[in-house]
Amino acid sequence: MAHRSAIGLHLVLRQQGLVLLGLRRNTSYANGWWHLPAGHLERGESVTAGMAREAKEELGITISEEALQLVHVLHDLDADDHAGRFQLFFTADSYVGEVTNCEPQKCEELRWWPLNALPEPTVAYAGTALAAIEAGQALAVHGFPA
């Protein structure tokens, strides 16, 4: 049987050595935890179209698909539902607009954090991915038994 997996899309925006994180609230996952701007790939869209859509919906910025760069893939085994998920992490060198919290019902606040001093609690797999990105690793696995 073929493996099926949800695909998460994450935006790693950096500014002067800082990374943008949002404090989640009123969501079905990780309420009260800091996380990258993220969402899920929807049926019928490419990963770049999905990431551009999420950036617009969550942050109010327009990123062209060509400006997105895939910097990391993380295969995550969710501790709650034991489902495997592929998490894709993108950066963008340019975008149009000003970063704004466009989903205050789901995000209490947006804040820029130093990569070497992420807030507590930060979603664990996001922390794993950010450390791997900083180390130049294109791929990581999280949550699977050793």
Results as ranks from 00 to 15, higher is better:
Glu98Trp: 12
Gly60Phe: 05
Asn116Met: 09
Glu134Pro: 03
Ile7Gln: 12
Ser28Gly: 15
Ala126Leu: 08
Thr27Asn: 06
Glu120Gln: 12
Glu54Gln: 10
Met1Thr: 14
Arg111Pro: 02
Cys107Trp: 10
Gly97Pro: 04
Tyr29Asp: 05
Gly136Leu: 05
Val123Thr: 07
Gly136Gln: 02
Val123Phe: 06
Ala117Pro: 00
His10Asn: 15
Leu139Lys: 15
Asn26Gln: 12
Pro121Lys: 05
Arg14Trp: 05
His142Ser: 15
Ile7His: 07
Thr62Cys: 11
Glu108Gln: 14
Leu18Phe: 11
Phe90Trp: 15
Leu9Trp: 00
Ala124Trp: 06
Val47Met: 02
Pro145Glu: 12
Arg25Leu: 10
Ser64Trp: 06
Gly60Asp: 02
Leu23Phe: 03
Gly17Glu: 08
Met1Gly: 15
Arg53Asn: 06
His75Cys: 03
Asp76Cys: 02
Ala49Trp: 00
Leu110Met: 01
Val73Gly: 08
Val19Leu: 07
Gly60Ser: 06
Leu23Met: 01
Asn31Thr: 02
His10Val: 03
His75Met: 09
Ala131Asp: 13
Gly8His: 05
Gly60Thr: 05
Arg53His: 04
Arg4Phe: 14
Leu118Asp: 03
Ile7Tyr: 04
Gln15Pro: 04
Leu130Tyr: 09
Ala55Thr: 03
Gln16Glu: 14
Ala135Ile: 05
Thr48Ala: 10
Glu66Met: 09
Ile133Phe: 12
Val141Trp: 14
Asp93Tyr: 02
Leu77Arg: 12
His142Phe: 14
Leu36Glu: 03
Thr27Trp: 02
Gly44Gln: 13
Val123Tyr: 09
Ala117Asp: 13
Glu45Gly: 07
Ile63Gln: 01
Thr91Arg: 14
Val99Phe: 09
Leu110Arg: 07
Glu65Gln: 12
Ile133Ala: 10
Gly8Cys: 06
Leu23Asp: 00
Ser28Arg: 15
Leu110Glu: 02
Glu58His: 10
Thr62Trp: 12
